[in-house]
């Protein structure tokens, strides 16, 4: 907790972190509360307003789609789902990746070699292709999407954590702890883990946009979230079909998707700067 607290107190001083972080938090709040403020819900079809352009007067600020559903509510739902998928998938990759990487780095030797070769082997598999096969073979569902994205992302995390652990293990303060008789478990908890926090947080903020992209990609292919549920990727897919004549169906979710991706990427970069500055001090 201590390490996290110190990281946060540094991060808070960076304007880029505050701006991007604030924007994302604001977006999530709007996405959560917005649907309650609208008179429509994401299922309701409004037959008087099919494919109507965005306007404030008829209560459809983002317009409607080809079934007359309110795009304001659907887009906010898409943001919710997209961010949820990204967070859960990143959490999955965080847990597996950190655990796997730390064990490999700390044990070292042959165990490390075998564990990392396993990672290399997984890298070589065409995962998207496998996921597509899985989705075709079984039913499409939420769970499969998490598995698919988490399975791709934890590999990078494991590699990064392992490398960091390897270098930490050789640091002099770890040797000093060994000489004082500190136990293996305590060395991990007190000396290795806290020094990993910065790197892991930074890398996590870069994993989230990757997860979002993969989810959007799957949804765009029609393999992701199932109707009537939706995500930004699925909305963009629908928008492409009505690109001529109903450009808002494409432009609004695409712009939001780009905004979210940019925010996470900038946040990751800014956090990395914060972390580097601390390292060199």
């Amino acid at each position: 907790m201590n390490a996290l607290g110190r990281f946060w107190s540094r991060a808070r001083q960076s304007r880029a972190v505050l701006f991007c972080g604030g924007l994302l938090v604001g977006l999530v709040v709007v996405a959560m509360l917005g649907p309650f403020l609208s008179p429509h819900n994401y299922l309701q079809t409004d037959f008087n307003n099919i494919l109507s352009a965005p306007s404030l007067t008829d209560g459809h600020p983002f317009g409607t789609d080809d079934l007359g559903r309110d795009l304001f509510v659907r887009t906010l739902l898409g943001v919710q789902v997209t961010i949820l998928v990204a967070l859960v998938a990143s959490a999955v990759s965080l847990v597996i990746g950190v655990f796997y990487g730390a064990v490999a780095g700390l044990t070292g030797g042959r165990v490390d070699a075998i564990m990392m070769r396993f990672v290399d082997t997984l890298y070589a598999l065409p995962f998207i292709f496998l996921v597509i096969l899985l989705m075709v073979a079984f039913e499409r569902n939420f769970f499969l999407i998490f598995v698919a994205i988490g399975a791709v992302n934890w590999l990078d995390m494991a590699r990064i954590v392992r490398g960091q652990t390897l270098s930490l293990r050789e640091r002099e303060f770890v040797q000093a702890a060994q000489l004082s008789g500190v136990s293996f478990v305590r060395i991990i908890l007190r000396h290795i883990a806290p020094n990993l926090v910065g790197v892991v947080i930074v890398y996590l903020t870069l994993t989230i946009p990757q997860a979002i992209l993969v989810e959007s990609f799957l949804s765009f292919l029609g393999l992701g979230i199932q109707e009537p549920q939706t995500s930004l990727g699925a909305l963009v897919d629908a928008g492409v079909n009505h690109m001529e004549g109903a450009s808002w169906m494409l432009l609004i979710p695409a712009a939001l998707l780009a905004l979210i991706l940019l925010c996470f990427n900038f946040l990751g970069d800014a956090l990395r700067d914060v972390f580097d500055a601390r390292q060199s001090r």
Binding site: N2, A3, R6, R171, E172, F173, Q175, A176, A177, L179, S180, G181, R190, H191, P194, N195
Partner: peptide, 17 residues
């Protein structure tokens, strides 16, 4: 604990956290 070591790089031998 009877045999102790002091390192060359003082900052590197202290856990930064």
């Amino acid at each position: 604990s009877d045999l102790q070591l002091v390192f060359q790089d003082p900052v590197g031998s202290l856990n930064p956290q």
